[in-house]
């Protein structure tokens, strides 16, 4: 599992610059979490036609326009959380201490069902540290989650 976080952390560092590059907005670990979803390019066309707009993809990438998260997706889907809007869902769930996005994150990290409750507690208790400022990016949060897990006796085994 170490690879997952290595990949995520790596992306967190390197994608920052790319986040605003052509073809890259709306996606990547470099996105600010509380940016909402206005950048989700799929939504406009989805609103009109319930579908995709010309660059439908088939599995090897995540399928959002300009958002190629193929590498992390291969690792149990934690790359999904690089997609705009996803980490904000996690933030919301973390504030409360439970929710589908947080569960999905724990599953994507390979955390066993019996330890997921504990994972959520640790996340909940450290909300302020994880989401320290309004300009925090998805990659930064991911990195902090990893650090928190390393410091925790039970969760360290999953890192």
């Amino acid at each position: 599992m170490k690879k997952v976080f290595f990949a995520a952390a790596l992306l967190g560092a390197s994608v920052t610059a790319q986040a605003n590059a052509p073809g890259g907005p709306g996606c990547g670990w470099g996105n600010m979490i509380f940016d909402g979803q206005s950048g989700l390019p799929a939504h406009l066309s989805a609103t009109i036609v319930d579908g995709t707009s010309g660059n439908a993809t088939f599995g090897m990438t995540s399928g959002t326009n300009g958002c190629d998260t193929s590498v992390p997706l291969a690792y149990h889907g934690s790359g999904l959380f690089a997609m705009q809007g996803m980490m904000e869902e996690v933030a919301q769930d973390t504030a409360v201490g439970d929710g589908e996005a947080l569960t999905a994150l724990s599953v994507s990290m390979g955390i066993a069902p019996e330890d997921r409750g504990h994972f959520k507690q640790v996340m909940h208790a450290n909300f302020s540290e994880l989401f320290s400022g309004e300009e925090v990016t998805a990659g930064e949060v991911m990195q902090k989650i990893t650090e928190l897990m390393e410091q925790d006796e039970k969760l360290a085994t999953y890192v």
Partner: peptide, 30 residues
């Protein structure tokens, strides 16, 4: 596993429209 639906895949069938097609044109061609 209930609770990991967020990690599931959706299979969608949809018309492939160009982004610049407007809604009326879509209805007609649709």
């Amino acid at each position: 596993d209930d609770g990991s639906e967020w990690l599931s895949w959706a299979i969608n069938f949809a018309a492939q429209v160009r982004p610049d097609d407007n809604s009326l044109f879509y209805i007609y061609r649709g």
